Simulated assay, not measured.
Amino acid sequence: MPSYLTAPRSRPGPRRRSLLTGAAGVASAALLAGCTDSAGSDTEESSAARRLRAAAAKDSRELLGRYDAVLAAHPSLAGRLAPLRSEVKQHADAFAAGRAPSTPAATASGSAAPSPSAPAGPSPSVPADPGDAVRALAKAERELADRRGQALLDAPAEEGRLLASVAAAGAAHAYLLTEREGDK
């Protein structure tokens, strides 16, 4: 009788199931944040929301700067990184404008080429090896997603939902950036 069991994968890094579980946890926390009663006044909440959005926009612009630096140092990675970079730019724009990012379908059909409007400030150092540069991007995405996951616990409802969505996207980006390493 043939065996239908397959050998377990020995690929390093998170599995799709754990990625989806993590994203579901972030989304659940956002829903809970949206259901809590507001203890402060509307002015305090709107001030906290503005500060949260400003900090999140700054973080996204810094991550966008990392993508731009890697693409400048390793143009051969453009096909792989441009779609993720485009989404990071949409996240920065969403936090800056106070609106939700556009749908993934719009992202896929939109221009994925980096824009010349890189964030101001010093350019982050980029490893000479393209693989190391991609791993550094994955680490930055993962760390930012983790920080955003923690920040959404105290976020006002609207900002918590946006933060949860962008944190889940960042976790997915980190996964996609490290996915090819297991294929070698």
Rank of each mutant, 00 (worst) to 15 (best):
L71K: 04
L71P: 05
A72E: 13
A72T: 14
A72D: 13
A73N: 07
A73K: 13
H74D: 09
H74K: 07
H74S: 07
H74N: 06
P75G: 09
P75Y: 06
P75L: 06
P75V: 09
P75D: 09
S76Y: 00
S76P: 00
L77N: 11
L77G: 12
A78C: 02
A78L: 08
A78K: 06
G79S: 09
R80F: 13
R80P: 05
R80L: 14
L81E: 10
L81R: 12
A82T: 08
P83T: 05
P83I: 07
P83C: 04
L84V: 08
L84G: 04
L84F: 10
L84K: 12
R85S: 08
R85N: 03
R85Y: 05
S86L: 11
S86T: 15
S86W: 10
S86H: 14
S86E: 11
E87T: 11
E87V: 09
E87Y: 11
E87C: 04
V88A: 11
V88L: 02
V88R: 08
V88E: 08
K89E: 10
K89R: 11
K89L: 02
K89W: 00
Q90M: 02
H91G: 03
H91C: 03
A92V: 05
D93R: 02
D93M: 01
D93W: 02
D93L: 06
A94C: 02
A94K: 03
F95T: 10
A96W: 00
A96V: 02
G98T: 14
G98L: 12
R99H: 14
R99D: 12
R99C: 05
A100C: 00
A100N: 00
P101E: 06
P101C: 01
P101N: 02
S102R: 11
S102E: 05
T103Q: 14
T103A: 12
P104H: 07
P104L: 01
P104Q: 09
P104V: 05
A105K: 03
A106Y: 11
T107V: 11
T107K: 07
T107P: 00
T107R: 12
A108F: 13
A108E: 15
S109Q: 13
S109T: 14
S109W: 06
S109A: 15
G110L: 01
G110T: 05
S111M: 13
S111L: 15
S111K: 12
A113W: 00
A113N: 00
A113S: 05
A113L: 03
